[in-house]
Computed example of a mutant assay.
Amino acid sequence: MNYNVDVHGYYGDFGGAFIPEMLYPNVEELRQNYIQIASDPAFQEEFHALLKDYVGRPTPLYFAKRFSEHYGCKVYLKREDLCHTGAHKVNNTIGQILMAKRLGKKRIIAETGAGQHGVATATVCALMGMECIVYMGAIDIKRQAPNVARMKMLGAKVVPAESGSKTLKDATNEAIRDWINNPVDTHYIIGSVVGPHPYPDMVARFQAVISQEIKWQLEEKEGRENPDYVVACVGGGSNAAGAYYEYLNTPEVGLIAVEAAGKGVNTGESAATSQLGKSGIIHGSKTLLMQTEDGQITEPYSISAGLDYPGIGPMHAHLYASGRAEFISITDKAAMEAGLLLSQLEGIIPAIETSHAFAIFEERKFKADDIVVVNLSGRGDKDLNTYIEYFKL
């Protein structure tokens, strides 16, 4: 079985482009051009130069000695938290801003949940001198205030989404509405492996630099390219897509996707899409999403704004449905405790999204000689207020 996208934009049963007629020209223009543009040597040269000199790649692959001793296996951390802007999101925004320039677009829109993608989009728009509008749920604006301030400092206009649950899903809805109203001059930089084809594949390709680096870095450290497991948190799933990409069709590498169980999978306050979701269409693609019996989207919940999404990207839906990836759901409590533990064992404060990935070591046992790479997708600066309130620090 092939786990990459097919020529029709599908991963197994999931994917495609389910879009309003008004958006068809935009999406079709991108579909027809994205691979040709991205594979052009001049594009690749500019992309990789910016990743090196601006983003600060390659990011280290760090052996977490004390964390490893604590759990009795070999744990490496892929340090995406050390990227410029503090998370993996900038890999994709660099790629997409270069794509937008080559397509002649002048105006950039984006959606954001935790704010990291919004900051990354505002950053590359400042770099390239392009107008930037970021849609963000009103609730997320309150709980991610430092990132909102960063976006504004970078020259972006931050527009609150006041509908629905006032979180990531609603911000995405508002961004799509904007795109429908401004189809000619606007490029929508989607921040995750969601949306209509070609977005899930395009974002995964730009994030694939993560696993490309893991391969040669692990070869240097362990004399082998392949770890036993790659672990990443999954909301929409771009950091996981990047960490998995080079290993998708390497069955001996186990893929572990960690979702937000919120207050418990069956409490009604969760974002564990793999366990609670059914096949349906959200934001332009067929995937697994949380929904009622009559197909209305269920409001998700997670203490982490970046995992507070009612669906997963079609690549991840296929990885789940096919059994290629193992999906684990982690509660708010377990994630917060794991974030504190990593901070105190390794001196690294992770984003709460990433903390979910570290929490699996409490319940998922590994062998002593297993090499487990955890994608440390973002740093915890943006979440300090949440940590402070939770632990009464």
Rank of each mutant, 00 (worst) to 15 (best):
I330W: 07
G235F: 06
R57M: 09
K286T: 07
P300D: 07
F366G: 01
K105D: 02
G237D: 13
Q207W: 04
T112D: 03
G295C: 07
I303S: 14
K65S: 12
S192D: 05
S192N: 02
D294N: 11
N385V: 13
V372K: 03
H318Y: 15
V159F: 03
E389P: 02
A260G: 07
M136N: 03
V231G: 09
T292G: 09
I388K: 15
S329M: 02
Y247K: 01
T298I: 08
T267P: 08
H48W: 00
E80N: 13
V5S: 09
S355V: 03
L61T: 15
E220P: 06
A114R: 03
P60S: 15
G115W: 07
G235W: 13
F18C: 09
A260Y: 00
T287A: 06
P60R: 15
A175P: 05
E131M: 00
F358K: 02
L154C: 06
S329H: 10
T93N: 02
G195H: 06
G72T: 04
H117T: 08
V5W: 01
T172Y: 12
V90T: 14
A175R: 11
C83R: 05
Y62V: 15
G15K: 15
H283W: 06
V159Y: 12
V374I: 13
I281R: 06
Q275K: 08
A321S: 10
A325D: 04
Y76R: 13
I139C: 11
I176M: 12
A38I: 12
G235L: 08
Y387F: 15
K89D: 09
E299A: 12
N226R: 14
I297W: 02
L218G: 14
H316T: 06
T331Q: 10
A305L: 15
S285A: 14
I281F: 04
F327W: 08
S238G: 05
I37M: 06
E80L: 14
A351C: 09
V258W: 01
P146T: 14
E259D: 04
G242R: 01
K382G: 05
